[in-house]
Design a protein around this nucleic acid. Sequence first.
DNA 1: TGCAATAGGACTGATTTTATACTATATATA
DNA 2: TATATATAGTATAAAATCAGTCCTATTGCA
Lengths: 155, 155
Amino acid sequence: MLALTRKTDYALVALACLGKHFSAAGTGLASARKIASEYSLPLPLMRNVLKQLAQAEIVRSARGVRGGYSLAVDPHCLTVIQIIDAMEGPFRFAPCVDGLPVVDQVCPIEHICPIREPIRRLHSSLRYFFGQLTLADLLAGKTQVMLNPLTITNT
Amino acid sequence: MLALTRKTDYALVALACLGKHFSAAGTGLASARKIASEYSLPLPLMRNVLKQLAQAEIVRSARGVRGGYSLAVDPHCLTVIQIIDAMEGPFRFAPCVDGLPVVDQVCPIEHICPIREPIRRLHSSLRYFFGQLTLADLLAGKTQVMLNPLTITNT
DNA sequence: TGCAATAGGACTGATTTTATACTATATATA
DNA sequence: TATATATAGTATAAAATCAGTCCTATTGCA
């Protein structure tokens, strides 16, 4: 299904929450419990999501009683593709897209596949698009993100 | 996972195959067996894929000995979103996107969700993008499809 | 120093995707 | 008209992914 998973969804919520209170001083610590309750999301799930984001070094974690998570990077530098990659594994538009971890193996019919090139281009375009889009863009409430009417040029 | 399923992948291959031989006269009949063997894809799968495309009236079917499938619509009019919708159910960028069949129910926190609006906009943008993109675009080997550098306008 | 609150890691159950099989129906052709 | 070949529909099994739970380790604080 060409859709984000629920975990990625939760990750965006959590990061949006942490991002709101972000400053250069590195403030904005919040526990999984706090975030989950603030948005009425299941706590165990939110825990897993934040753990995964910590492993990807998108958030920093602090253990212990007054522990929690905080953004490890500036929201202007954190792109949606990084978040997707962290939560779902490397983004791929289709099963057959080349790039690091191809699902099974190399496509056995790549030399005659009629959709290989178009798929490859769409993959690149989408990856570029989500690689440009930052958490800060999402956070700016008045931000209108738009894909321009697509350009089709004969080259 | 933000990716097309394998079935959609196969559907694109099949449609590309049928589209190559498309003409106003409505030629280009090919059986599931022929398409599967031409691209070394599992026959039972290709059967299911074509059945689904037939139910969505994207291809026409002809039973019997010299039967098979042919495109039911001009490749210039068949959009990628139609193909995705037919194979995977209505496209949605995230689980929480509104539009017809929301996954479970209405989002219980929509009034405070920090990512609702951005997600909604991305969903619309992507849907528009894939709704503009036709099979003919994919088929034209020299077609370069590009998302323009995204535009962020403060409104 | 014990307790309560926190993150970390491993594990399990549920859902979706992928793939196959079987039966029924239609149809061209020998 | 018998037969071979095709789609239509339905059911089901296997695999992969996703969603959710449980237990352990760490740490601040009374």
